[in-house]
């Protein structure tokens, strides 16, 4: 199969898969007990008001009519409105997704870079004391639940040392946090940076362990391979050998990275809650409690899209970095 045909085939597959996910999500959330209307009635809204609202929003129509309407609207770029906040879903989630991406994306990336370097270093010194004990601190930080690490960081850095604020994304005194300035202006302040530090570190601590462990194992494995001994015997100097070693050992880490990165778009609920970070993970939990289906559905769909497209991208990318899985010539 040629590369073009493969990409075309996989694209069609991806679209079909996403449509199935969308359908599943739509019906799945409607099977949840309770609805937004029930919640309003429970909170004391009078029956006529609730009924009028149901009618106005089309929630009294048969499910397949709602479904058809939802899908066609989504195709035109309209994901509906948030039931809680009465604003378009996209307007509600876009800044929250941005905040999550801004925090989780770089943090996981840095964790992976650290982890890969540390794991590569330890594996390369197989049999030494460093290799034996070097992973212990990583295993500790990596296996602590995130909220424990987060709270410890808060106690030490925000409490005892009083270097950074305990939570939030901006302080009250951030002068750029008003509608007079462009939306991105507050992010370029020292105020943002100090709020960013702790959640960032927490995620780095959490996501260094996995790549480090995988990388160490890979390096040890590659070192034992015949082709690596052959490289050595052909007289490659140390730095060249190291390059070949890393080229091989990093392959499984490349597969893991996008999987971890899907966390970025879905948000890391626990960390966002502990640090009161206005990200999508936190917003999603609130939306589920409020039975705010348009928001929940859209965010889940976005996460699913990210995972599916991400895997697709990795498959294509892998063909370039590992000729053995290339779709050409086979």
């Amino acid at each position: 199969m040629s590369r073009v045909r493969y990409v075309a085939f996989r694209s069609v597959q991806t679209v079909v898969l996403l449509f199935l996910i969308l359908t599943f999500l739509f019906f799945f959330f409607r099977m949840l007990p309770g609805s937004y209307a029930d919640l309003m009635a429970f909170q004391g809204a009078n029956e006529a008001t609730v009924e009028a609202m149901q009618e106005k929003w089309g929630l009294n129509d048969p499910l397949y009519v709602q479904y058809f309407r939802y899908v066609t609207n989504l195709l035109t770029g309209d994901a509906g409105s948030s039931l809680q906040f009465r604003i378009p879903v996209w307007d509600f989630v876009k800044m929250k997704i941005f905040n999550s991406l801004l925090l989780v994306g770089p943090a996981i990336t840095v964790g992976y870079i650290f982890g890969t370097l540390i794991g590569g270093f330890l594996g390369n010194r197989r049999g030494s004391k460093e290799e034996k004990y070097g992973l212990i601190p990583l295993i500790l930080t990596g296996s602590f639940p995130s909220f424990v690490t987060a709270i410890m960081f808060i106690i030490v850095f925000a409490g005892w040392l009083n270097l950074v604020p305990t939570s939030g994304m901006f302080g009250f005194s951030n002068p750029y946090n008003s509608s007079e300035f462009a939306w991105w202006r507050p992010y370029l302040t020292k105020d943002f940076a100090i709020h960013y530090a702790l959640p960032f570190l927490t995620i780095v601590a959490r996501y260094t362990y996995l790549p480090a462990l995988v990388m160490r194992t890979n390096v040890v494995e590659v070192l034992g391979q015949d082709f690596f001994y052959y490289h050595r015997m052909t007289g490659l100097p140390g730095e060249q050998q190291l390059k070949r070693l890393m080229n091989h050992a990093i392959l499984p880490v490349v597969t893991l990275y996008p999987i971890s990165m899907t966390r970025a778009i879905g948000g890391l609920v626990v960390i966002e809650m502990v640090f009161n970070w206005p990200g999508i993970g936190y917003a999603l939990v609130q939306a589920v409690f409020a039975r705010d289906f348009p928001v929940v559905q859209f965010v889940f769909f976005l996460v699913a899209t990210f995972v599916v497209v991400g895997n697709f991208a990795v498959d294509i990318l892998y063909g370039y970095i590992d000729p053995r899985v290339s779709v050409d010539n086979n």
Binding site: D226, G235, P237, R324
Partner: peptide, 28 residues
């Protein structure tokens, strides 16, 4: 030393056909 082997002997002077040739070439 490893360096002397690399610079003076390996492949320039002495080359080697390994026992497990099947796995000796770099797959990447």
């Amino acid at each position: 030393t490893e360096k002397e082997f690399n610079e003076k002997l390996r492949w320039k002077e002495i080359s080697w056909i390994p026992q497990g040739s099947m796995n000796s070439l770099d797959p990447l």
